[in-house]
Write a protein that binds this DNA or RNA. Structure first.
Length: 281
DNA sequence: GTCCAGGCATGCA
DNA sequence: TGCATGCATGGA
């Protein structure tokens, strides 16, 4: 990857396996919005970013080199060889056809707090509604980081809200989970920095101790917020996909189960009928 | 009107 | 340990 600065933006050349619509709008992050010029705007780690892919496959990022190196380089996992990982998981035939069709999905390294809260909201919910709830949460309670864009609100800020405040933004019955999560994270009863330094086994059991966090939400938080690429979250779509793997996951996924999962999740949502494991006509 | 969505807590056996 | 049930909301 070659990075050059030009006109207050960064130009990235040689980035492989990154399609912005696939990666930013595949149900792992909920705050990215496509702009009229085809670029994508969003916020993470208290920073705003606009990113666009040009006709020559270069990426133009409206950000500073400092923010790129401290935030976005890791967020997009630019230093990981996704091309090689895709080749490995393509030893499985269903993943092979899926990667060929939807090449360019990467797993983002999101902020643990944002990922955990987002996936508590995600339970028994659909992606469109999840986005709406999270956007109202950020617009209402996150600090403005540039015009019209708000950071994801901190645990301290969210601990000031009531259950009713969470319900008022559409969180429904998850409001009580969010209230307790915010209170416990603000007071230090839950310490995500500690969890980030744990083994997968310990991190998972710590997350499962949180009110409103079960196996699926924990796996999503671990994969998208704690950089455990071996997690393989099983939601309703992935349970349908598992009917195609009666003998369990193939060996070639080893270590990158989460990446294979995200391709299969995208395949399922686009190629299976709702409520069943039947492939669309 | 019914079904569904990146599920979980609770009660009960 | 496993299974049944209730839960908020809005789009299809």
């Amino acid at each position: 990857m070659i990075i050059t600065e030009k006109d207050g933006a960064l130009i990235l050349e040689g980035v492989k396996c990154l399609e912005l619509p696939l990666t930013l709008d595949c149900g792992q992050a909920f705050r990215w919005k496509e702009q009229e010029d085809g670029s994508w705007s969003g916020a993470a780690m208290n920073k705003f970013l606009n990113i666009k892919k040009d006709g020559e496959g270069r990426f133009i990022l409206k950000t500073t080199l400092e923010d790129f190196n401290s935030v976005w380089r890791n967020y997009f996992d630019f230093d990981r060889d996704y091309e090689a990982i895709c080749e490995k998981i393509k030893q499985d035939s269903l993943v092979a056809s899926t990667v060929d069709k939807y090449y360019g999905i990467r797993i983002l390294n999101q902020d643990p707090w944002e990922a955990l809260v987002s996936f508590v909201i995600s339970q028994q919910n659909n992606i469109k509604r999840i986005k709406g709830i999270i956007n109202r949460l950020c617009d209402g309670y996150g600090e403005e980081i540039c015009e019209g864009w708000h950071a994801f609100p901190s645990a301290e800020r969210l601990s000031e809200l009531s259950v009713e405040d969470f319900e008022a933004i559409g969180a429904g019955y998850r409001g009580k989970y969010l209230k307790k999560l915010a209170d416990d994270a603000a007071s230090g009863i839950i310490n995500l920095d500690d969890i980030k330094n744990m083994s997968l086994k310990d991190a998972k059991s710590a997350l499962l101790g949180i009110y409103g966090v079960g196996v699926k939400v924990a796996d999503c938080a671990l994969l998208f917020g704690f950089q455990f690429l071996e997690c393989f979250p099983l939601d309703v779509w992935m349970k349908r996909v598992m009917e195609f793997y009666p003998n369990g996951l193939p060996e070639c996924f080893k270590g990158y189960e989460g990446i294979a999962q995200q391709y299969l999740f995208h395949w399922a949502r686009n190629n299976l009928n709702k409520g069943t494991a039947k492939i669309k006509d």
